[in-house]
């Protein structure tokens, strides 16, 4: 898997197609695992999509008392293993990004796994394949680098210059799983 999940929050139009698509995915039990939320409803109608970062050293797995959260060899952080999960919800509180969800009825945690069955074969995950405004994209590493560069250039044209202290503000959201050899 050499592709990247690339998010651009500003592009989100709040249609929630990604959530509908997520519900359709097999094994998701008609429950979405991603989020579309308002930045500040009293200020504007700007929404943003939110997915799991697939951390290399996930805080959710570290706070799990049952050691139930596993990482695949490609680096995808999976939902808690059903036989191990004791339903304490530590993962939802440990995650710095507020991603894992919890099903009280079935007593299990579920979270975005980047549609592992699709992405391991380089097929875009459900959310990325339906997003009409390309706020969520599943692209090659090179394409991602190009987009980031273009984005920085755009900021320069607009009159903003990245400085040492704030250069990361000019880099859009990108995450995903890629090998270091890329």
């Amino acid at each position: 898997m050499n592709k990247i999940m690339y998010l651009e929050f500003e592009r989100c139009i709040g249609c929630r197609a990604c959530q509908a698509a997520c519900r359709e995915c097999g094994d998701h039990d008609a429950k979405e695992r991603n989020y579309v939320e308002y930045v500040d409803f009293t200020e504007s109608r700007q929404t943003f999509p939110m997915l799991c970062m697939q951390c290399k050293d996930p805080a959710c797995a570290r706070v799990c008392p049952a050691n139930a959260i596993q990482i695949t060899e490609e680096g995808v952080v999976l939902s808690a293993m059903e036989e191990k999960c004791i339903g304490c919800r530590n993962c939802t509180f440990g995650c710095p990004f507020g991603i894992p969800k919890f099903d009280f009825e079935k007593n299990k945690m579920y979270k975005c796994d980047m549609c592992y069955d699709r992405t391991r074969d380089d097929i875009p995950p459900m959310c990325a394949s339906v997003c009409p405004s390309e706020a969520i994209r599943f692209i090659d590493f090179d394409e991602m680098q190009q987009l980031r560069r273009r984005r920085t250039q755009m900021n320069l044209v607009e009159g903003k210059k990245p400085q040492e202290g704030n250069k990361w503000d000019y880099v859009p959201e990108f995450f995903g799983v890629y090998t270091d050899s890329q």
């Binding site: 930045v39 509180f93 995650c95």
Partner: peptide, 13 residues
């Protein structure tokens, strides 16, 4: 969790 997600988006944007 909802506020954490919002904080991340705000920081990013």
């Amino acid at each position: 969790p909802a506020c954490r997600r919002r904080m991340r988006a705000l920081k990013q944007m």
